[in-house]
Amino acid sequence: MARGKPEAIALGPGSLFIGVLATPEPMDLVTPWESVSPNWTGLGYTDEGSTLNYTVDSENVEVAEELDPIAVALVSREVTLDFALAQITATNLRVALNGGTITAGAGIVTFEPPDLGEELRVMLGWQSEDGTERWVFRKGLQVGNMEISRGKGASKATIGCSFKLERPSGAKLFKAMLAAPVRL
């Protein structure tokens, strides 16, 4: 007798996508992101995949007559998506620096960062390699330190990103789509 559902075990790093705010969202698990909207762009390779962090802060409601809290009040929530892009491109620099200007010329592409106050919020997407999960993060801003390290041998340069989610107008922070009945 099985103690769980082995088919519900999630493996692999998946693929990351980025889109401008209000880009149409996938409605299923099979339509390619770029077919949903040409505003979705794949971010390419990452160093070690991505990590979704969901943190809730709370405070106890206490009274003198009880030893235990009589309630727990939620006071804040923070959701971040962290990853290190393994492709050093002007497009990925634009992702890590919340915008900027890319100019392509004959045999060269240049990137210049945005001015303070001109940062762009974006949508992010993630899809599992086995096609059983898709996540849409509706509004995020890259708040992590951008650091590009160079080393010898097989040590590759990466662009670290930590996107903090913000509440989008009229919508929830994110949507997760999971294959049914496997992930019910």
Rank of each mutant, 00 (worst) to 15 (best):
residue 64 A to N: 13
residue 114 P to V: 01
residue 48 E to F: 09
residue 165 L to V: 04
residue 74 L to G: 10
residue 30 V to E: 10
residue 76 S to V: 06
residue 95 V to E: 06
residue 29 L to I: 00
residue 172 K to A: 12
residue 137 F to M: 09
residue 23 T to P: 07
residue 125 G to K: 05
residue 160 G to F: 08
residue 44 G to H: 12
residue 89 T to D: 01
residue 61 V to R: 01
residue 18 I to W: 03
residue 51 T to R: 05
residue 65 E to P: 03
residue 74 L to I: 15
residue 38 P to D: 14
residue 25 E to A: 12
residue 87 Q to H: 10
residue 13 P to W: 08
residue 102 I to F: 14
residue 130 D to G: 03
residue 30 V to W: 11
residue 76 S to L: 04
residue 67 L to W: 01
residue 161 C to G: 01
residue 18 I to Y: 05
residue 61 V to G: 02
residue 43 L to I: 13
residue 64 A to M: 06
residue 157 A to D: 10
residue 115 D to K: 04
residue 76 S to G: 11
residue 137 F to Y: 03
residue 125 G to N: 01
residue 33 W to H: 09
residue 49 G to P: 03
residue 20 V to K: 11
residue 12 G to P: 02
residue 34 E to H: 13
residue 127 Q to I: 01
residue 43 L to A: 12
residue 151 G to H: 02
residue 89 T to H: 03
residue 86 A to W: 07
residue 113 P to G: 07
residue 94 R to V: 09
residue 19 G to E: 07
residue 39 N to W: 15
residue 146 M to P: 04
residue 11 L to E: 08
residue 119 E to N: 08
residue 165 L to N: 04
residue 145 N to D: 15
residue 5 K to Q: 08
residue 24 P to M: 05
residue 81 L to F: 12
residue 133 E to L: 02
residue 68 D to R: 01
residue 75 V to Y: 06
residue 3 R to E: 11
residue 147 E to W: 09
residue 69 P to N: 01
residue 140 G to D: 00
residue 45 Y to R: 15
residue 48 E to V: 09
residue 59 E to L: 00
residue 83 F to W: 14
residue 56 V to A: 02
